[in-house]
Design a protein around this nucleic acid. Structure first.
Lengths: 186, 186
DNA sequence: GTCTATAAATGGATAGAC
DNA sequence: GTCTATCCATTTATAGAC
């Protein structure tokens, strides 16, 4: 891990980017190797199989969201944290309309076949739901915190899917306006 | 169309079913041929390419939802039509948790590569949004009918994705309860 | 119209030189 | 650790007999 941080990281970053754009199955090892500027045969020194790249890619996403949650948790009150979470979707609307949510589309694809990789990706949602529930609980909604968390994540994932399907980031603007107002009035 | 309704229909039905379970890219022509009990080589008599099967499959879905909308439109008031729409999701929760929404997952997959097939699938959402908007307009929500339609479809697509990702139909129950109550109180 | 056999291409994975 | 060459399985698509 310390010996070759450069090439391995480059491969993972390339995988995250290209898999987001093309999906996991359509992305070839040659695509990833090419984007990372690593010869194809050398990829197998860092990752035994394509699935191993998938695991590293999912771990990268999981770590990214864990970092974001930590940052949000350290600043502001629960309400502003939830607003910040919604705002992230607004900020990403162009990429969402182009390629969908990186986690959502990956979950949808991987769960069609199953396996450990699919479960690891789904776990990102579980962690996120837990964090959201915590925030709603802080707001005094102990009774229905889990349901409110599910509602918020559903709406954001759903509008990401629709914006992606129709190639229009404006759907994200419209639905997130509603959600932000909803949070402010809770 | 009248000469061979049987084999052609069998192939489309098999494609709808298996593509829902496995996704389009992972589904081979051999899978479809096998499920429809048609020899592989014979598939090409009915469909020139794999994409042609994709188009037939998408047209099947589009027709299915058009039929449902027609039935709903003919019975009850706007409010009960919207409730019926949500109820369809509840009724399908087991399949949704197993393989996701047939249209939503197909949209997500096909829009990663683009092309006419992706747009045809997205059009199903456009038609659905239009119908939902109409119902909200009948309920007197002229000003924000389109936003309400987007909110409802987003929430349903989102919870389908989450239930699929986590393999648990109960998420569908929880979110649809909220949505039904929301419609009743509009 | 039906079906077998196979062509052509793709892509994951490995061997082995350096 | 690095990289070229290549194996091998899979899958789309076609040729051509019946």
């Amino acid at each position: 891990m310390n010996r070759q941080p450069d090439k391995r990281s480059r491969l993972i970053d390339a995988a995250v980017r290209i898999v987001h754009e093309q999906g996991f199955a359509r992305t070839t090892l040659a695509d990833i190797a090419g984007a990372a500027e690593v010869p194809l045969g050398n990829v197998y020194y860092y990752f035994k199989t394509k699935d191993a790249i998938g695991e590293a890619l999912v771990a990268q996403h999981a770590g990214h969201y864990a970092t974001l949650r930590k940052q949000w948790t350290q600043s502001g009150d629960a309400r502003s944290r939830l607003v910040a979470f919604v705002q992230m979707t607004v900020d990403n609307r162009a990429a969402l309309a182009r390629s969908g949510c990186p986690v959502g589309t990956l979950c949808a694809e991987l769960n069609k076949v199953g396996g450990p990789l699919a479960e690891q990706t789904g776990a990102i949602f579980t962690e996120l739901l837990g964090w959201l529930e915590e925030q709603f609980r802080v707001l005094g909604r102990d009774a229905d915190a889990a349901d409110l968390a599910l509602h918020l994540l559903s709406a954001l994932q759903g509008v990401s899917l629709i914006a992606h399907s129709l190639g229009d980031p404006d759907y994200v603007n419209r639905e997130t306006s509603r959600l932000t107002a909803w949070i402010e009035n809770l």
